[in-house]
Write a protein that binds this DNA or RNA. Structure first.
Lengths: 160, 160
DNA sequence: TTGTGATAGTTTGACATCAAACGAATCGCC
DNA sequence: GGCGATTCGTTTGATGTCAAACTATCACAA
């Protein structure tokens, strides 16, 4: 409670904005999730499929930095996708430390079907904001996210 | 890519805002996390301690709705906190289905020490925004979060 | 050539998380 | 009072998540 009052108005406004910000993010994520899971894949798995679809085959390291997750995590998620037959691992002949992850035909079909649905769900989710508000939100979030100094965007959260 | 262009400008703005919004939330969360974990508790455990500190002893159900997590999850988190001696379960004599979770003295000491630090870390995190911007952000997030229609705030994401 | 250091991926152990199934207790209503 | 419906918490099984330890491979230098 000492802190509650410290910084007076600014402090109170900040904590209020923080709570609403985090709640909104969780809330939007939660409402979007069913659009993904009803296809039988998790949100993270969808992220992998989408990255492979839009960027092309890549190794675990790149996948991890796209999704901002650790490499150990990538192993697990790719395992699960491979077991479902949606991606396949291909050993790299040049550098045998590397494994390149590819979409299978089934994986490609799935992501092609899912992506448009997900995009339109997002548009619908944000339809409560005007164009001006969308722009403002993006600008403020960019500032909040970039924040160098500690754990900026660059290193992707020290995931590694 | 079909979708990329659909809805033209509005669609592009929306997807851009969406990505920045989600990234910013993840980023802020990730930068705040070390302030919590260095005390030897996880973010969720901190949430439980904070709720118990500010609201008082409560049962699993209320804890779950405060934190927006499922009741099965509450069981696990309270288990871990109890094992660390930070909370204790007390059987409710009136309604023997219920278990009331209380802070132990150690738990109370810990949350009293952590909370101010966390609050000031949040203030620092948001110091890149002006007061007017904080207010705007809070307003937009409230609209985004409230979103009735599907999975509003009321049910806490169907966690149950 | 060898060996030292960096890099890629996997494994391990701990925690979080959900949905669904389950057992115990309570409530509603006749 | 008694029985079906509901509520509470736990358990189970699957997934995600991290950090740290480990294995294999590569790069480069002495």
């Amino acid at each position: 409670m000492a802190i509650r009052n410290r910084g007076s108005s600014r402090g109170r406004l900040t904590l209020d904005a923080f709570v609403k910000f985090m709640r909104a993010a969780d809330s939007v994520r939660a409402r979007l999730e069913p659009h993904i899971t009803r296809h039988g894949v998790t949100t993270t798995q969808f992220g992998v499929l989408e990255a492979l679809h839009h960027v092309g085959p890549m190794n675990h390291r790149n996948l991890g930095s796209k999704l901002l997750v650790s490499k150990g995590n990538v192993t697990v998620v790719v395992d699960n996708l491979e077991r479902r037959g949606l991606v396949k691992r291909v050993a790299d002949a040049q550098d045998r430390r590397q494994t390149i992850v590819h979409l299978t035909p089934a994986g490609r079909r799935l992501i092609r079907r899912m992506f448009p649905q997900q995009a339109s769900a997002i548009v619908k989710e944000f339809s409560v904001l005007t164009v001006a508000e969308l722009t403002t939100l993006a600008r403020l979030c960019r500032r909040l996210g970039r924040q160098e100094g500690r754990g900026g965007r660059g290193r992707g959260t020290s995931r590694e």
